[in-house]
């Protein structure tokens, strides 16, 4: 399985330091590109384009970067994204350059599919305990997401462990195989209500009788 890299064109950046504020006001986001054997480069990109690429690539899909005016392409992962804590604006993006023939590790989000018969049985809730799996593979073979089929979760007390999740070929799991990824949580309130209803069933009959007498 090969992941298709997302394309992004960046421009070299002259504005450095606190002056990047002016850059942000014009809708341009400062970007950094660095990696093993590569000198760190200050780049920039339009915020709208960058957000679109980030939404598609996430942190585990490689992005093919091309600097404006240069022929060479560089494969990279989004390493860090900085957001404004209040306004939610994109402030800065770091790209980590990787080599296509060298395995890298990435945190891949777990996505749940289907409904768990076990959870339905006990009116419980499926809890995603481990949101991301640590996987190792070649940059272009890292899956965008890992899907977990909940239909396998038939036992209300059952769990799905990291080692039980099917991964594409040539992808290695770095997490502990016994680590619980998905489990069913029975809602205590629901359990209590059921217990109370069972206990009250005969009592309710008596109460109704006493009301009639009154």
């Amino acid at each position: 399985m090969t992941t298709e890299a997302v394309q992004l064109e960046l421009e070299p950046r002259e504005t450095l330091g606190k002056k990047v504020r002016r850059l942000r006001r014009t809708g341009v986001v400062p970007v950094h590109l660095y990696g093993a054997g590569l000198e760190s480069r200050a780049l920039q990109c339009e915020a709208r384009t960058l957000i679109r690429v980030l939404a598609r690539a996430g942190g585990n899909t490689p992005v093919t970067l091309r600097v404006h005016g240069e022929q060479k392409e560089q494969l990279a992962f989004v390493r860090e994204v900085q957001w404004h804590p209040v306004k939610g604006e994109l402030l800065h993006v770091d790209f980590l350059a990787v080599q296509a023939d060298r395995p890298v590790s990435a945190q891949v989000p777990v996505v749940l599919r289907g409904e768990s018969p076990g959870a339905i049985q006990v009116s419980g809730m499926v809890v995603l305990q481990l949101r991301e799996l640590d996987l190792e593979a070649l940059p272009l073979e890292i899956p965008h997401q890992v899907e977990v089929d909940l239909r396998r979760l038939t036992d209300p007390s059952g769990t799905i462990k990291a080692g039980e999740i099917a991964l594409p070929a040539r992808v290695t799991l770095l997490n502990d195989a016994d680590e619980v990824v998905v489990r069913i949580e029975t809602r205590r309130a629901a359990v209590e209500r059921e217990a109370a209803a069972e206990g009250e069933a005969p009592a309710a009959g008596e109460a109704a009788g006493s009301e009639e007498q009154a």
């Binding site: 957000i51 980030l54 939404a55 690539a57 996430g58 942190g59 585990n60 899909t61 992962f77 989004v78 390493r79 860090e80 994204v81 957001w83 939610g88 890298v104 590790s105 990435a106 945190q107 891949v108 989000p109 949101r131 991301e132 965008h144 997401q145």
Partner: peptide, 11 residues
């Protein structure tokens, strides 16, 4: 997910 949708599982 508001940020995670964009950032995914940042590696």
């Amino acid at each position: 997910d508001q940020a995670a949708a964009i950032m995914g599982g940042a590696g």
